[in-house]
């Protein structure tokens, strides 16, 4: 599905990612853990193809196709989607107008649980609460009928009740349909709700460990901090 080969990325002339390897198969959920500014979001935006995230070397392959130099919208058309941590406000454009434009599965939207239905007729992200913002992101992504989903700090700004509601939508609309997910986070709650198949730890732009037991990784992080993951005691079989 998604294969990243020795990817190095710089942003505004600063090297952020260094020789990152990652492979995500259909139906897998991968958690990418790491402290602030470790390069997690850079990897997410580089996969999505944002122009300021320049690939210095390496490749991004999606369904066997080299997408390293593909524009953002072409990647989106292939089904790569990203739920932003801090999506920009789009004044004048209502969420429903955007959904009408991007939606590939109108019929499925009917039974979509609307917890924040009043935001549909509001301008995108203008005055949205944390929960409304995340719901809007999820709604957009699901309407695009994705084949790969990146959730960038999806749990940031969400209370536990809304996190439970939104992760149940993720379970129902994405995981149940075997849509692979890259879950970028540095919090534990969302891991418990989504139970990733693989956990990676990123430090200083490098993936320093990978393990299929996310609980063990998270336990190590909580007890000893991210640096402990560097020590090679955790396996790296899934990279």
């Amino acid at each position: 599905m998604l294969k990243i080969e020795s990817l190095s990325v710089k942003v505004r002339e600063k090297n952020i990612l260094e020789k990152v390897n990652l492979k995500i198969e259909n139906g897998e959920i991968h958690a990418l853990l790491g402290p602030n500014a470790s390069g997690k979001s850079t990897l997410a935006y580089a996969i999505m193809g944002f122009p300021e995230y320049k690939v210095v070397s390496g490749k991004i392959l999606f369904e066997g196709k080299d997408i390293t130099n593909l524009p953002i919208e072409e990647r989106a058309k292939l089904g790569i989607t990203l739920a932003f941590q801090n999506p920009p406000s789009i004044k004048g454009v209502t969420l429903s107008a955007l959904l009408k434009t991007i939606s590939k599965q109108k019929s499925d939207m009917k039974d979509f649980p609307i917890f924040f239905s009043e935001i549909l007729e509001r301008e995108i992200n203008v005055g949205f609460s944390g929960g409304e913002r995340k719901f809007s992101e999820l709604l957009q992504i699901i309407s695009m009928k994705p084949s790969f989903v990146i959730l960038d700090e999806f749990d940031a700004g969400l209370d536990i009740i809304n996190l439970e509601k939104l992760t149940s939508i993720i379970q129902d609309k994405l995981i149940r349909n075997d849509i692979p997910i890259l879950l970028v986070t540095h919090r534990g709650n969302i891991l418990q709700f989504l139970e990733p198949d693989v956990a990676h730890v990123m430090l200083d732009g490098k993936i320093v460990c990978t393990m299929d037991n996310w609980r063990k990784v998270w336990k190590t992080i909580r007890r000893y901090g991210y640096e402990k993951c560097k020590e090679g005691k955790l396996s790296s079989s899934k990279q």
């Binding site: 999505m48 919208e73 989106a76 989607t81 454009v93 955007l98 434009t101």
Partner: peptide
């Protein structure tokens, strides 16, 4: 870029805005 990540071309995104 946000709208392009939803599959709109740049012109399409400008048109929508």
């Amino acid at each position: 870029n946000y709208l392009r990540s939803r599959g709109l071309t740049e012109d399409g995104a400008i048109g929508l805005i």
